[in-house]
């Protein structure tokens, strides 16, 4: 798929992108490299994998990482209960070697996301979400999969990929990832969208919401993100929730009162809410005192 086709597919998915993002995705696709996406929480990293699944017309296989994640949760596990039952049933009827061999066959193998993604008949998009939350050991284990597109299972041997998945890894930079993993990936760093892009996202995702309200919401969110005093910056999803909530409440103008009523959708801790009390984010932009909140890009 070339760059223009990719852009067309993303347009079809109503995904708002810039040229940088489209180029990076096209490069990753061209080179067949996994894509490592870093950025603050809520900038839309996971969304990229979903959009790629749509654009490439593939299934999305998602693996959420967490501390303590191991091979049995990520790659495969033997169906132990089924194996025990098989032993009970076949005891005394089959010779023991054959029974042992049979116990470690596909029939008793429980596929987890990684194995599923490489054994799939149709290529998939594999999302390894928040890799920074997994342990370093797990990262090392991923190396074989990402570079050779194969995994080793001691009882079975090496399993090579039937189809090559498009792999997307996301990280919030909670811990530095190993150089070895980074080197195998194409890299994308994304920041919060600017005013123009945020407004475009609001319009694309919430077409029924009043344009003026969207502009006011986008402007207020930009101000909140720009404030050093706000510790947890609002994410894009929170912006969308907030605009939808304002619309659902029938609010057409983002007044200080309306902001107070709905602040819980956009700020999620008490310190930030206290800061909001002292700041007027609904005031028009300082460079443009007379506008009602048109976008400033």
């Amino acid at each position: 798929m070339n760059l223009e086709e990719l852009k067309q597919k993303m347009d079809e998915a109503k995904y708002v992108y810039d040229d940088t993002l489209a180029t990076v995705l096209a490069v990753a696709l061209k080179l067949g490299r996994p894509l490592l996406i870093e950025g603050a929480a809520g900038v839309g990293k996971t969304e990229i994998a979903k959009v790629m699944a749509h654009a490439l017309d593939r299934d999305l296989v998602r693996m959420q990482c967490y501390e303590g994640l191991d091979e049995s949760k990520a790659l495969y596990e033997w169906n132990y209960q089924k194996q025990l039952l098989a032993i009970q049933v076949d005891m005394g009827r089959t010779d023991s070697d054959e029974l042992t061999r049979g116990l470690f066959s596909d029939e008793y193998l429980l596929e987890r996301p990684l194995l599923k993604s490489i054994r799939s008949e149709r290529p998939v998009v594999l999302l390894i979400d928040e890799i920074d939350k997994a342990d370093e050991e797990f990262e090392a284990f991923l190396l074989e999969l990402l570079s050779e597109m194969q995994v080793s299972i001691p009882e079975v041997g090496t399993i090579k990929a039937k189809t090559i998945p498009f792999v997307v890894l996301t990280s919030n930079r909670a811990r530095p990832l190993s150089e070895a993993l980074r080197r195998r990936c194409a890299y994308l760093y994304i920041q919060y969208p600017d005013m123009e892009k945020e407004l475009a996202i609001l319009r694309a995702k919430l077409p029924h919401v009043d344009d003026r309200l969207c502009a006011q919401v986008a402007l207020a969110v930009q101000k909140l993100r720009g404030s050093e005093a706000i510790l947890k910056k609002p994410s894009i999803a929170e912006t969308l929730d907030w605009a939808a909530a304002l619309d659902a409440l029938g609010i057409r103008e983002l007044t200080p009162d309306a902001l107070r009523q709905t602040a819980g959708f956009i700020l999620k801790n008490s310190e930030d809410l206290a800061v909001l009390e002292q700041t007027d984010v609904t005031a028009p932009h300082e460079h443009c005192g007379h506008c009602g909140g048109h976008h400033h890009g």
Binding site: L3, D19, T20, T23, V24, A26, V27, A28, L31, L36, E38, R173, E179, R182, R183, C185, A186, Y187, L188, Y189
Partner: peptide, 21 residues
Amino acid sequence: FGLGDREQVKTALRTVYASSR
């Protein structure tokens, strides 16, 4: 991608060469 668009070339090469912020 060719060499026509400088920004595109920059983004494409950055994706290949740089692996952190």
